[in-house]
Each structure stands twice: as C-alpha cells, then as structure tokens.
Design a protein around this nucleic acid. Structure first.
Lengths: 193, 193
DNA sequence: TAAATTTCTTGATTCAAATCATTGGAGCCG
DNA sequence: CGGCTCCAATGATTTGAATCAAGAAATTTA
C-alpha cells in the first residue's frame, strides 16, 4: 500500500523494517476521481500528499478570476500548499485531479511526530525541501530568462511524460501563455526542423 | 563576529554556548567591495554565505547574453547557488556585491559535518529550506498571476528596504521588465492616487 | 454509433511592452 | 568647479502576444 512513500524515503536514507513500520503507522490513504479536488483555495491544507498513481494540477486564481497552473504532479511527486500546511493559514492554491488518483497522506501532527522521533525522517525531509527549492529556483530562472519558445522546449525535455498526459492548454497556462500562443509556438518549432 | 549567523540559528532552535562554539568553529569571514563577485557563473559554489552587512544581487545570463536579476540579499539573508554547492556543478548564477559587504561563510564539508554531529543544526537547515521554498513559491505565483503593476506594488510592500537601496533598473530586471516600462508603471501608479 | 463536449489550430485585430532615441538630473572624480 | 558617468523619465516606433472569432479534430458520453 505505501511502497511508493517508503521507496521515496529509502532513496535518501535507509530505513530499518522497524522504522518503515513506524512511518506507515502515520500514513493514510485517499483516492480521488478525475476532477475531484485535493485542496481548495481558502481551506486549510491538513495533509501533504504523495502521488502513488494519477496526475494532478495545482493552480491559483488571479485578481481578475483567471486560473494559472503553477505545478503538475505525477507518480512519486509530493503535493500540498506548504504555507497553509505549516502555518495553518487558508490555502491560496487549488489542487485538482486530472486523472483518477491514489494518494498517500501525512497529517501535520503525524509529520511533526516523525520529525521529533526519527532523525532519518528529518534528514529525508531536509533533503526533499532542498531539492524542491533547487528545482523551483531553476523554474524561476527559466521563467525570467527564457523566451516562450525556449521555455516550451525546456518543459518538453524536462517533463516529456507530462506533455503526453496533460492537455496542451494546461501546459500553456503553466508557461504563462494563452493556448493560441502555445499552438503557434509548436507549429513554429516543428517548421524549423 | 558571527552574531548574525548565531542569532539566525537561534531564531529556529536554541543553542547552548557549547553548540554555538561548535558552529562558530566551522565559519569563516569574508568582505567584498562594491562590484566584487561572491560567485561567477561557471565556478563551483564552495560556500553558502550569510550577509552580515551590505547588499548583493544574484543574476543569470540568458542565451542572448542579457542579465536577469533573480534575487537580492540584504543583512540576515542567505546566499549561494545551492545546486552548485550541493552537487559540485558549475554555477549558473552570478552573485555580485552592490555595496561593500561583510559575509559569513560555511563550506560544504563544514556544513555536512554540522549536519552529522548536531541534530539542531539539521533542524535549523530543514526549517530554513522550507521557508525559502515557501517564499520562492509565492514569488513564482506572483510572477505568473499578477500584472506588472501589481507585481511592482507587491514588491514595494514586501521589500521596501530594497527599493531604497537598489537602483530602479535592477528592480526592473528582477521583475522581468525593461527600465523604461518600470518607469512608466511608477508614473502610472502615482497618477492614480 | 451518433451527439455533445472538449481541445487544438488558424486568421484578423488590438494592445501592451520592447526597442530606439533623447533629454535632464544626480553623483563622482580629476 | 567642470566634465563624466550613471540613472531616470519621456516620446516615437516596432514587435510579439492577447484577444476575438471561427472551424476542424479528437475525445467523451449517451
């Protein structure tokens, strides 16, 4: 049931069977149907999720009411509005299933308990946050320094699997473009070759 | 000498005098004159820095050779190309002093040693990375969902001190705008009131 | 299978920001 | 002090993406 979560942790630190059991004792499971929400803006994010199966999108709503996708998540990726999770503030993000999903959840109390009692769990989480920060920094850099064409090419080469599973207009939203513009970029790129 | 660093750690975890001494033993000090570089693209980032005094900018160079500022740092902020630091890859970022600076440095071996020997240091670093991630996520959200006017207003309200110390064309670069556009946004905003 | 919905493409037009160019002021150094 | 460099403001023009609009293709669902 929780093999995906344990294997993620074991990639960074090696757990004993005993430690694996202690972690599993803190986890819960949840399934979502396509178009169901894991989190809605304004709610408090009570859980961090790990995707065991499926695909989801995170999006925010701007002052004019338009949606902007800020992240996708596939198998093995973590999810949640960390700001809301840690500070118990209303979430500003929405997280919606794009396919039927299996998620593995950990609550804040469970997370804090593991941090307190299991140094390896804290090490895992430190590494996870460091890597997440580095990845987000790369994205920020691309957003500010690459042209739309280059951004799309970079996206395709880093996340080819997302391109296959997610509608194109959502990728446009992620890149900060209209669907029409992304369509034109694609035809421009394919005519170049 | 290293009070700024210790007070940052003590904000998150409380250190004993003994622990403070162990940390200080791993730190070094560096001064930079205005326009000197802490890090240049292509070099390996051997240290993470904490700013004790002064102001710096981080910028990247795009495929056309144009500079884009991705971050500023003032007193109490941490600095470095984490990707390069942890993976010992060539840095993609440049970090330059905008004023004469005092920095407090920690090398990778020193950092790893403290992580191994002092659980509180790992806790501090986990919290630091989590907060940095949350802050960067907010910025990414603003970049994708706010209009240039709104982004500038948000920047001024979050970092009023940076606005006072940094030339306007650098703030334009940080916001992904030309200096001319930012100048026009400012006059537009001031005429609104 | 057929109808309905969603998604993608393409064209015409509008609009906002980039670019190009100039001026005026502020701070710095000989 | 005067000349120099850097910086901000403003105007004219160009450019590229958004918007508006329509239709084709693909997927869902009845």
């Amino acid at each position: 049931m929780y093999e995906v979560f344990l294997s993620k942790v074991n990639e960074k630190v090696s757990l004993t069977k005993q430690e694996e059991a202690e972690i599993v004792a803190q986890l819960t499971h949840k399934t979502l149907r396509k178009r169901q929400f894991f989190l809605k803006e304004g709610d408090i994010c009570r859980y961090i999720a790990l995707v065991e199966k499926g695909a989801l999108r995170t999006y925010v709503t701007d002052p004019e009411g338009h949606e902007h996708i800020t992240a996708f998540a596939l198998e093995g990726w973590s999810l949640g509005d960390l700001c809301s999770f840690f500070r118990e503030e209303p979430a500003t993000q929405n997280i919606e299933a794009l396919e039927d999903c299996d998620l593995c959840l950990i609550s804040r109390p469970a997370h804090e308990a593991l941090l307190q009692t299991m140094p390896k769990y804290e090490t895992y989480h430190r590494i996870l946050m460091t890597e997440a920060y580095i990845a987000l920094q790369k994205r920020t850099r691309d957003m500010i320094s690459l042209s739309p064409d280059e951004q799309y090419k970079a996206f395709v080469s880093v996340y080819p699997n997302i391109v296959l599973r997610v509608p194109q207009h959502m990728i446009a939203s992620y890149l900060g473009l209209t669907p029409e513009t992304l369509s034109r970029i694609k035809s421009r790129i394919s005519h170049q070759r």
